[in-house]
Write a protein that binds this DNA or RNA. Structure first.
Ligand SMILES: [Zn+2]
Ligand SMILES: [Zn+2]
Ligand SMILES: [Zn+2]
Ligand SMILES: [Zn+2]
Lengths: 150, 150
DNA sequence: GCTTGACCCTATAGTAGCTACAGGGTGTGC
DNA sequence: GCACACCCTGTAGCTACTATAGGGTCAAGC
């Protein structure tokens, strides 16, 4: 199978396949006399493995690790696989929390502009401007552990 | 004021300041005889403006726009400012949703490995392997709108 | 006058994970 | 013999920085 067919079967771009090969994620296939890559059915599975892990947000480095564990299944405990997934879960969770804070900050800022007015009178711009001079802003309330109401 | 002092006052790295200048976000300051950048107090505010917007997750392109509106406050309505913030809110919100899905998928995958066992018997690796061959997996349930229970 | 050290300069490369060329070769059908 | 789809390598681009390398400047202290 040529690279285009592999791309079709996996839904992965041709350039991405070549990129994975360069990065050592996908083993280099045999070549035809004219230098074309010739893939075996096993490559479809390996590429699917990579794409599946990528769709879970894993880094290429982590996928390399996982693929290695997968291809050399030693009689060791699977602690490191778990640790890898747990780390990923932690990363995703902290990103969610960061983004949720960000959303609240943006909504607070957005709330400064209601009725129609000009750019010169816009509460959003005014808030950003004042904050640049060191004044407190709605989007960055002092983090003193206080509740919002009070 | 030299670049180091500006960095200290704004909590921004020296290299980042030079980068913003290259990118046209911060106006190029006057230079001393020996070529050192000499900043005015206004630069502190402009840099604070940029950093404040960055802390809200805005792209440099958006910040360029906002700074432009800010420095040339025309008597137009502020629709474009609002649109910019609204877009940013939408982006952040959709990222949150994506990450929340991801978290659920990762937790489902993680649930395949409980009691101690070897790499060869690990449910996580087995799930990833099976999915590479086209079998259904816990982390990517068919999106047919079905509820989980049923 | 000389050295030390903190500061400054430019230019370039690296990060993650692709994506998009440019500039060429190959293979098949008409 | 030509069109067209496919393949190849190598390089540059994307974001927002960060980190060097390799040098110049300036004030203080001996
Ligand atoms: Zn407004
Ligand atoms: Zn704020
Ligand atoms: Zn396990
Ligand atoms: Zn899955």
């Amino acid at each position: 199978m040529q690279i285009g067919e592999l791309a079709r079967q996996t839904g992965c771009e041709v350039e991405t396949i070549r990129y994975y090969e360069r990065e050592g994620l996908l083993p280099a296939p045999a070549r035809s006399a004219s230098g074309y890559r010739r893939y075996e059915p096993g490559h479809v599975e390996q590429l699917n493995f990579i794409r599946h892990c990528r769709s879970l947000g894993m880094s290429l480095a982590d996928i390399r690790q996982l693929a290695d564990y997968h291809q050399h299944p030693a009689p060791e405990p699977c602690d490191r696989v778990n640790a890898l997934i747990d780390d990923q879960i932690r990363r995703v969770h902290s990103q969610i929390e960061t983004l949720q804070q960000l959303e609240q900050q943006l909504l607070a800022l957005r709330g400064r502009c209601h009725s129609p007015h000009t750019l010169a009178d816009c509460g959003i711009l005014k808030t950003l401007e004042d904050a640049s001079s060191g004044e407190p802003c709605v989007c960055h309330p002092p983090a003193t552990g206080k509740k919002i109401a009070g």
